[in-house]
Simulated assay, not measured.
Amino acid sequence: MNKTIITLAAATLFSHSVLATTELPDKQAELPAHPKTEKSDHLVPRDFSTIPNTPFGDKVKQGYSLFVNTQTLQGKYVNNQQNCVNCHMQAGMKADSAPLWGAFMAYPAYRSKNDKVNTYAERIQGCFTYSMNGTPPPQDSPELVALSAYSYWLAMGGLLDKYNMQNTPIPELSDAAVQLGGNDESFILPIEMMKDLPAGKRGSLAGRSFPKLDKPEQAPSIERGEIVYNTTCASCHGANGEGIRDHGVQSFPPLWGKDSFNWGAGMHRVNTAAFFIYENMPLGKSIQITKQEAWDVAAFMNSHERPQDPRFKGDLKANQEKYHNHQGYYGKTVNGKVLGEHSY
């Protein structure tokens, strides 16, 4: 593989991409769900002990550290009590939990909701804006580069090993290349992979999303969901969705309230939350509740107030009509209160 070609070509293309805008388009468009795939088809990233002791390896290590403990960016880029790993399990490596290796290979990609091609770095920026209720790290910042490098390292190591190239070292890319993503002509893969993974069609790796659940037999119920939450979820996430905090450290994340993800985050959608909950919760004991219970508890979780949608410009109805035509409770009346009207 010619690392120089990858680096220079990606850098040239990346220079034409704009990561920061004055508006806040919907960079948090719903992650497409797919049928569950066989475990044998999933990528398995390389062991962390193989991360090289080089400047690029240091970026990968920093990316891992930021991913599992994003609270180190509290007050700078993060304004709630969430960590990236709360939604992307096992340090972003777990298949069927929106793993980083799948996301990296899916970008750059066109998104109809903001009518532009988004780079991988832009996708991460969207997570900071919405899931972290914060401020996105700027282009080329050490944090954005590190998170991108970590994602690339997971993806490339998994691909090389899947194609029986275990002895091939992971090429070290430029900052521009890792921020671009792997789904582009400039991102050159070994010839052994190119037939299976042509540029523009790398966003469908097995296990890259939350597996889609069938529609429930009964409409999701907030009331039934409250029962599921109290018996299954409250021990980790608190009676009032506040999570568990000990000695200033948030060990389990809040699910609603001022320290949770805001109304623009993908997880506030009932269907997205149901897909995630069924596959990944309770932590370490996934697929322990029924599909109907997953839908119900997702409805209960998302029927509470949380931080305001960053795209809100003073008109709740207008914001609802523009950005919330999906399964959610933003702008709707629940227990006599219009959600979003008194957001944090």
Score class of each variant (00 low, 15 high):
134 G>M: 07
63 G>P: 03
4 T>I: 15
85 V>D: 13
183 N>A: 02
208 R>Y: 14
179 Q>C: 07
157 G>I: 09
311 R>A: 15
82 Q>N: 12
85 V>S: 13
110 Y>D: 03
7 T>L: 01
136 P>V: 07
83 N>L: 08
341 E>G: 15
75 G>I: 13
220 P>E: 04
338 V>A: 07
328 G>H: 05
245 R>P: 00
311 R>G: 08
41 D>M: 11
194 M>S: 11
311 R>T: 08
69 N>I: 06
270 V>P: 08
132 M>F: 15
78 V>E: 04
298 A>N: 13
251 S>F: 10
152 Y>V: 15
239 A>R: 07
32 P>K: 11
247 H>K: 15
214 D>A: 15
184 D>A: 13
147 L>Q: 06
158 G>P: 05
52 P>Y: 05
95 A>K: 09
77 Y>T: 00
1 M>N: 02
190 P>C: 10
332 K>I: 08
329 Y>G: 00
328 G>C: 12
48 F>Q: 00
125 Q>W: 02
34 H>D: 02
329 Y>T: 02
192 E>F: 00
40 S>A: 14
183 N>I: 00
22 T>L: 15
5 I>R: 15
57 G>A: 10
282 P>V: 14
76 K>G: 02
119 T>Q: 11
301 M>E: 07
56 F>T: 11
55 P>G: 00
182 G>F: 07
280 N>H: 05
214 D>K: 12
212 K>R: 14
87 C>S: 12
324 H>D: 02
319 N>A: 04
250 Q>T: 13
135 T>E: 12
84 C>M: 10
111 R>T: 00
169 P>A: 11
103 A>Q: 14
294 A>N: 03
327 Q>E: 14
212 K>P: 09
265 A>K: 02
208 R>I: 10
164 N>A: 13
181 G>V: 02
320 Q>F: 08
222 I>E: 03
49 S>F: 13
29 A>N: 01
297 V>M: 07
187 F>Y: 15
257 G>C: 12
140 D>N: 07
267 M>T: 14
247 H>W: 11
136 P>W: 08
181 G>S: 01
265 A>I: 05
109 A>H: 01
325 N>W: 02
340 G>P: 02
110 Y>W: 06
39 K>M: 04
71 Q>A: 01
31 L>Q: 14
111 R>M: 01
262 N>Y: 07
2 N>L: 12
240 N>D: 13
183 N>C: 01
204 S>G: 00
152 Y>P: 06
32 P>D: 03
36 K>I: 10
266 G>S: 13
209 S>T: 15
287 I>F: 12
11 A>F: 01
324 H>M: 00
103 A>G: 03
206 A>C: 11
235 S>A: 14
187 F>S: 09
232 T>W: 06
101 W>L: 04
232 T>D: 05
44 V>Q: 14
158 G>I: 10
223 E>C: 12
266 G>A: 13
85 V>Q: 14
317 K>A: 13
217 E>Q: 15
171 P>D: 03
11 A>D: 10
281 M>P: 04
8 L>C: 06
205 L>W: 12
199 A>L: 03
